[in-house]
Every structure is written in C-alpha cells, then in structure tokens.
Design a protein around this nucleic acid. Structure first.
Lengths: 174, 174
DNA sequence: CGTTTAGTTTGGTACCTTCCGAACCAACTG
DNA sequence: CAGTTGGTTCGGAAGGTACCAAACTAAACG
C-alpha cells in the first residue's frame, strides 16, 4: 500500500528533524569530549542535556535517547555530576531524579575560569623555561627574546580580558 | 674511603643540577603532553630538545638522555618530525642527523594560530547550539542571552587579539 | 668484500579506557 | 510481606596506546 502524499511528507519531515538533531548531538558531543576530556558516552549525554527542550531528563530518558546500558548511563551521569557540570532536581511524589545542565551561569563562568587557569599555567611554564635558558645559554635566550615578548604580551592581554569578563559575568549573576 | 670535602660538595652540586634539570624536563614534558597531545616519551624528548644548550642533538643523545629504547626513540623523533615541531640538520662528513626544535618562529606562531582555530571552532559550535535553541525553545534561548553575550564578546575580543599578535609575529619574521 | 654506524621495521606485551551484562540494593507500593 | 521502580556496583571483554627487544637495512669505511 502506498501512503497518501501528506503522510509521506510528514514522515520525511520528522525523519529530517530527528537525524538533524542526532547530527547536532554528535557534533556537540565530539566537541565536548575534547573540551572537557570526557569519555564518548558522557559527552553525548551532556550534549543531549544541553540540547533538549525539556526542563530536565530522567535516568531513563537519557538511557533511551542514547541507547546505552543502565550501568554506563549511571556511571556517565555520576561523572558529570561529580564534575559539577550537570545537576538534578526532584518533583514531589516522584522518586526519579531530573537531570539538567548546571545553569549556564556555571557553564560559561567555569569555562572562563578554566581558560584563565590554563593561561596562568602556561605563563608559569614559559617563565621557567626562559629562566633556565637565561642562566644556561644566554645567547639562545637573547635570540628568541623579541618573539617571546610578543607571545607573552598576548598572554597578558588575554589574561586581562578573561579577568574582566569573569567580573562582568559574576556581576549579572547576583 | 671518605672523599675529601670539596669532592663531596662538587658531587652534590652536580647531582642538584642534574635532578633540577630532570625535574624541569618532567614538568615541561607533562605540559607538552597535554598541549600537543603527545605520548609521554615524545613529549619528554621534545622537552629535552627545548631545554638543551647544544645546537642540536643526535639520535643517540636523545636515546641516552631519556634512557629509552632505539625503536621508541626512532618512533618518537619521527612523530615530532611529522608534526613539524622539530627539524634536523646534518654536518658535512657526519652521517648523523642533529635534531632541534623547529625555530621558535614556528613554535609561537603555530601556537597562536592553533589558538585562533580553537576559538573559531568554539564560536561556530555555540552559534549552532544557539540557533537550535532559538528555533526549538525560544524561552530557554531568551533566558541565557545576556550571559551568552558576555561570553561571545570575550571570544570576539580574544579573536581580535590573536589575529593582531599573529600579524605582529609574522612581520618580525620577514 | 666484511664490518661498523645510524637508524627503521616488525611483532609482541602490558597497561589503560570504555563500555556492557548481571547481580545487587534500597525505597516505595499494594 | 512480595513485587516493582530507580538506580549502583562488580567483573569482565574489546579495543586502543605506548613501549620494548630483536631482526633488519642502507650507507660508509677499511
């Protein structure tokens, strides 16, 4: 039996939306894997939580939307909880937990703060190496000075930018 | 037999310098591992090449300084060569290759360019997610708009900073 | 030619990560 | 109480990474 035309179109549309969504979950998932050093499954679940319209997803929702095992879903959700990048809430008369991303407050703020830490760490390392070269081979040190200066200059400006943005963000969150 | 005092002091000093150097190699090594996604051994060899006073180290120098096997040393050096973060040169009448870090030119420039790529990639992803939310749940979208704006603003400024620094660096390298 | 030098390639081991199924537990429900 | 729901914990299995030792190769040396 051939379905009537409107049905076909509707099916195609739904299929398109579903696969487009899956695609986005995948894209975002890969990104998050790298960004937060998450295992594949945890990253996909995080992506699902970021993208959903619902106000919070249950354990089972997560499980079904990804098609993973109970144990892996449990492990992944707990990992995300421990990292503080998701939270859950409960509804009265409902034993289940509803998981959702920790308010974007935390999301972007954490990102900026993390970034700041990275910059500071790198500055520290560069200083360490520079000191070492200054002592052990002044010639080599002199050579690279100008380039190094540009790089350090960028790092400092970026650091200032970060501190400033963090302040701004904190202010609107009070 | 008890060594005379000066000998003891000398030994202690040498030991101190050696372990201090080893420590720095280790610290820098771990940093590079994370920064360039390098396997442990490759990262340590890279660190050794960054820190040495010599004008270039041979295969055997690398092998000895790290105490690794020939095969692993070979693999690691080739990996670093393929990634373009080290180079080698030869001396007339000497069959060996002398490895050294690719000029800091490439080092810092590559770092800035890599950073720029990361920022652009993240901006793209955020836009993607934002568009999705705008379409599927406008309420959710409105809520986070102010925070998102601050973050995107930071990203744009950082992007400008990076482009600028890259230009500066390119200029002094001509 | 045989020998030495400077590396490369191959095959295998050890470890680490990620996920799963199955058994388990703890709270509530009738 | 027994049964269901909402998870957690445990013991692998599969796959990937990083390293090593040993065999090999290719160029130079005498």
């Amino acid at each position: 039996m051939v379905p009537s035309e409107p049905t076909v179109i509707l099916r195609l549309q739904i299929h398109f939306m579903v696969t487009a969504n899956q695609q986005l979950i995948e894209t975002l998932g890969v990104h998050l894997e790298g960004e937060y050093n998450l295992p594949p499954l945890a990253a996909r679940i995080y992506a699902i939580l970021i993208l959903t319209d619902e106000d919070g997803l249950t354990f089972e929702d997560c499980l079904e939307k990804r098609g993973a095992s109970k144990s892996s879903t449990s492990t992944s959700l707990n990992l995300l909880l421990n990292m503080g990048i998701i939270t859950y809430f409960t509804k009265p008369g409902d034993r289940r937990r509803y998981f959702s991303i920790a308010k974007q407050k935390t999301f972007f703020l954490a990102k900026l703060q993390e970034n700041l830490k990275r910059v500071e760490k790198e500055k520290a390392i560069i200083t360490l190496v520079l000191d070492y070269h200054k002592k052990s081979s002044p010639k080599k040190f002199k050579e690279g000075q100008e380039r190094t200066h540009i790089y350090l200059d960028y790092m400092n400006k970026n650091e200032a930018l970060l501190t400033e943005s963090i302040e701004k963000l904190k202010k609107i969150l009070d």
